[in-house]
Simulated assay, not measured.
Amino acid sequence: MESSAIAALRCSVCAAGVTLDGRTLRCARGHAFDLAKQGYVNLLHARVPAGTADTTEMVAARAEFLAAGHYAPLADAIADAVPSGDGLVVDAGAGTGYYLAAVLDRAPGATGLALDVSAVALRRAAKAHPAITAAVWNLWEPWPVADDSAAVLLNVFAPRNGAEFARVLRPGGTLVVASPGPGHLAELADLGLLGIGAGKEQRLDESLSEWFVAADRRQVRLPLTLDPGAVRAVVRMGPAGHHLHRDGRAERLAAVSSAVEVTAEFTVSVYTAKEKP
């Protein structure tokens, strides 16, 4: 675990700072959190409700799909949006750490902190890049991360807790949000992928306007030819992976036997933190 990331972490019981003692994070009040053998730490105190965290199958599908390079241009666009420099990059909803690793590859002096509610995903995130520290946490709860500790905050297809974004991001820091565009994988709608409603960008800006100013926005559009294995992976790796048992979706997915032409569409939005009162 990186020392600068540990310095930013806080005890999830009492909010005191923590130090690494062997393979255990400890605070001065005696609360302790053991590192898993895969390198991440679980700071949660309660079980995650069913259908909330990515499952082993979903994470395996995502790792397979991303390793094939289908979304590499999106990773590049996210890395392009991050200002150069050192400091802590917090990825809120990091999943397997794929996008955070791409950012850190461009910034050798930076450190990454991956937060996600899925311990299964963070097993991979902890190994995705040497500069990543991974911690299991529910993003809707107050984060066990110090005020003003992050230079950059990433949010890629994950829950957006604007108040915690603003608290953790230092004044003048950068928030990068990646979200699916209106036509994203529309060709696979009959396999359970949800459509993206109109006006999403405006709703995103409004939801963050209390704390952030929109600074830049770029579109990423990727025509893809997906073989049957990639089609199954892209469907299983997202929220649809929780619902394949419904309406014959699993059967339709299993029946895909030839390549499918699809279009992946993304919006990468960049925000600057407002001055804090």
Results as ranks from 00 to 15, higher is better:
3 S>Y: 02
3 S>C: 03
8 A>M: 10
10 R>W: 12
10 R>S: 05
12 S>F: 07
13 V>R: 15
21 D>N: 13
27 C>Q: 01
28 A>C: 11
30 G>L: 07
31 H>E: 09
33 F>Y: 15
35 L>A: 10
37 K>P: 02
38 Q>S: 15
42 N>P: 04
47 R>K: 14
48 V>N: 05
48 V>H: 06
49 P>C: 12
50 A>K: 15
55 T>E: 06
56 T>Y: 02
58 M>H: 15
60 A>T: 15
64 E>P: 00
66 L>F: 03
67 A>F: 04
68 A>V: 04
69 G>N: 06
75 A>P: 03
80 D>T: 13
80 D>I: 08
84 S>M: 06
84 S>Y: 04
85 G>N: 01
86 D>P: 10
89 V>Q: 04
89 V>F: 10
92 A>M: 05
93 G>K: 12
95 G>E: 06
95 G>S: 09
98 Y>L: 01
100 L>D: 04
104 L>Q: 08
105 D>G: 02
107 A>M: 06
108 P>E: 08
108 P>G: 07
109 G>P: 09
111 T>K: 01
115 L>T: 00
117 V>C: 03
118 S>D: 09
122 L>F: 10
122 L>Q: 13
124 R>E: 12
126 A>E: 10
128 A>I: 07
128 A>Y: 04
129 H>F: 05
131 A>T: 08
133 T>K: 03
134 A>I: 09
137 W>S: 00
142 P>K: 01
142 P>Q: 02
144 P>Q: 00
150 A>S: 03
151 A>V: 08
153 L>E: 01
154 L>K: 01
155 N>K: 04
158 A>H: 08
161 N>T: 11
162 G>V: 09
166 A>G: 08
166 A>T: 08
167 R>N: 12
167 R>I: 10
167 R>V: 08
170 R>G: 03
170 R>T: 00
173 G>N: 09
175 L>A: 11
177 V>A: 12
178 A>E: 09
179 S>D: 13
179 S>A: 12
180 P>Q: 07
180 P>R: 05
181 G>W: 04
181 G>E: 09
181 G>V: 09
183 G>L: 03
184 H>Q: 07
184 H>I: 03
186 A>F: 00
186 A>Y: 00
191 L>T: 01
196 I>A: 10
200 K>H: 14
204 L>E: 14
204 L>N: 10
205 D>W: 11
207 S>T: 15
208 L>Y: 13
210 E>C: 11
210 E>N: 14
210 E>A: 15
211 W>L: 02
212 F>H: 14
213 V>G: 01
216 D>Y: 00
219 Q>E: 15
220 V>C: 14
222 L>F: 02
222 L>Y: 07
224 L>I: 05
225 T>L: 15
226 L>Y: 01
228 P>E: 02
229 G>C: 05
229 G>K: 14
229 G>M: 10
232 R>G: 00
232 R>H: 00
233 A>W: 00
233 A>H: 01
235 V>K: 02
236 R>T: 15
241 G>H: 03
246 R>H: 04
248 G>D: 11
250 A>V: 04
251 E>L: 00
252 R>P: 02
253 L>E: 02
254 A>N: 06
255 A>Q: 07
256 V>L: 04
256 V>Q: 06
257 S>P: 00
259 A>F: 05
259 A>N: 03
266 F>K: 08
267 T>G: 13
268 V>E: 12
271 Y>L: 09
272 T>N: 14
275 E>N: 14
